[in-house]
Design a binder for these strands. Structure first.
Length: 420
RNA sequence: GGAAGGUUGGCAGAGUGGUCUAAUGCGCCGCACUUGAAAUGCGGUUGAGGAGAAAUCCUCUCGGAGGUUCGAAUCCUCCACCUUCCGCCA
């Protein structure tokens, strides 16, 4: 949610930002019209109410009674306008930061740099699925029998590898001051809304909803961690508050029929270690860089070749003001010619989620009026999305004989150095 | 699943229809006293919104949403959450 006062005072800037995100800028005008109407009604109702109160205190019951009906009528109207105004406010996306490249879609994302040496093979590199099925690491067929399409069983060393990756991610994050945490994966509707999902029509279909219990399955633990501190007030010295969460993630992938249908690249259920930070507004860009650097550290520890992208305005999504993606090099894809695929994403959501979730901190700054309560900033970033990391390791560490070496850093967690 | 009891400001906790703009205590902030601190005394201390150049004024806010009433923390309805007991269960 955007700051209402900001929209009132900077409507042109808001329209520009909204348009850059491929959303109709007309929304901002619609809001301002309703907001004006709302303000007039509030004034009127407040004044009538004050009058009624006076009559009531003076026990002039008849006069108070008269006003009561009048107020009720106006108040009903006010409520209607309020609902409409609120709806639009929730539809307005977060505005991109100034240094975000303007663009229409993922083709306009800017590659920042490429790190790591792509593996060179003296043979035709294979697709991970072919390798994994031969080594009995992944079973798609039986998963499809049991659960349908877009599921997989991870078996044997692949299952063990998951735990090793989780441990590596947590160990790395803990060193940077993150609290390890395992959150609930079912959350209430209001919390899902607070995080800025499910308001935009394109996200509706992406989420699993348990009708009987009115609970949503999280698509990422971000949705469960953010609301943890809703309606809370931090002391300035408590910030930044950092979590490294391990959880299952559930995605219906309703909008992606026919896309990546094979294997475990795009599945309904996967596991992920996610980083989440609550921080001071003026520190969020620095924090964003920290999240990106941890993601890169993890990739470098695994010695996987990757590139970093600055995501353009049109590809940012609702809550993000700025986003970096990391794409790993997958040599077995694209018929053995290789291609980059997304494994990590980190977003700075500034105060957009905090405003909805009402998460603030008590500022020590003297120039802030009143109690000095200000909204904090929230950020999230992938540590490891396990399935895609398995794919990356299998394809990059494959050997001519179809065996797979284990990245050195993981060997201490596993006790073996290759899969064959 | 069954039964009972709860939810009040940063915290504890009083309040069952009208100065509740919520007692009291703790905490926090300021001032006084003090060489300094503690103790003590005095004052302040929920948040949100609207009007105004400002001083300031007004409205809302006692888990949430409705309702009764001239008037609701207080009465009624629904919902959420918490605690305890029984049942079931990893």
């Amino acid at each position: 949610m955007l700051d209402i006062n900001f929209i009132r005072q900077n409507s042109e800037q808001v329209k520009k930002g909204v348009a850059a995100k491929n959303i109709k800028p007309q929304l901002a005008d619609d809001f301002l019209v309703l907001d004006k109407e709302w303000r007039e009604l509030v004034k009127e109702v407040d004044n009538l109410r004050a009058e009624q109160k006076k009559f009531s205190e003076a026990r002039e019951i008849e006069k108070a009674k008269e006003l009561k009906n009048k107020i009720q009528l106006l108040d009903d109207k006010l409520k209607q306008v309020e609902i409409e105004r609120h709806k639009i406010l929730y539809k307005l996306p977060n505005l991109p930061l100034e240094d975000v490249p303007v663009g229409k879609n993922e083709r306009d994302n800017v590659v920042l740099y490429e790190i790591g040496k792509k593996p060179e093979f003296d043979f035709q590199p294979k697709d991970y699925l072919e390798l994994a099925e031969k080594l009995d690491l992944i079973d798609i067929e039986r998963a499809s029998k049991v659960s349908g399409s877009r599921f997989g069983y991870l078996k044997n060393q692949a299952a063990l590898l998951e735990f090793a990756l989780i441990k590596l991610a947590l160990d790395t994050a803990i060193l940077k001051g993150f609290t390890p945490i395992i959150p609930p994966v079912m959350i209430k509707e209001e919390m899902m809304k607070g995080m800025g999902y499910i308001d935009r029509y394109e996200d509706q279909d992406e989420t699993y909803f348990l009708e009987k219990d009115k609970l949503y399955l999280v698509g990422t633990s971000e949705q469960s961690i953010g609301p943890m501190h809703s309606d809370e007030i931090f002391e300035e010295k408590e910030l930044p508050k950092r979590y490294a969460a391990f959880s299952n993630c559930f995605r219906s992938e309703a909008g992606s029929y026919g896309k990546d249908t094979k294997g475990i690249l795009r599945v309904h259920q996967f596991d992920k270690v996610e980083m989440f930070s609550f921080c001071l507004p003026e520190k969020s860009e620095e924090e964003h860089k920290l999240l990106l650097s941890i993601e890169e550290d993890l990739m470098q520890l695994l010695k996987l070749p990757y590139r970093a992208l600055n995501i353009c305005t049109g590809d940012l999504g609702g809550p993000a003001a700025k986003k970096y993606d990391i794409e790993v090099w997958l040599p077995g894809q694209n018929n053995g010619k290789g291609e980059y695929r997304e494994t990590h994403s980190t977003s700075n959501c500034t105060d957009f989620q905090a405003r909805r979730l009402n998460i603030r901190y008590r500022s020590q700054k003297l120039d802030v009026k009143g109690q000095g309560l200000e909204y904090i900033h929230t950020l999230n970033g992938t540590a490891f999305a396990i399935g895609r990391m398995l794919i990356a390791i299998i394809e990059n560490y494959q050997q001519k004989d179809g065996s797979i070496l284990i990245p050195e850093i993981l060997q201490k967690y596993l006790g073996f150095s290759e899969i064959k």
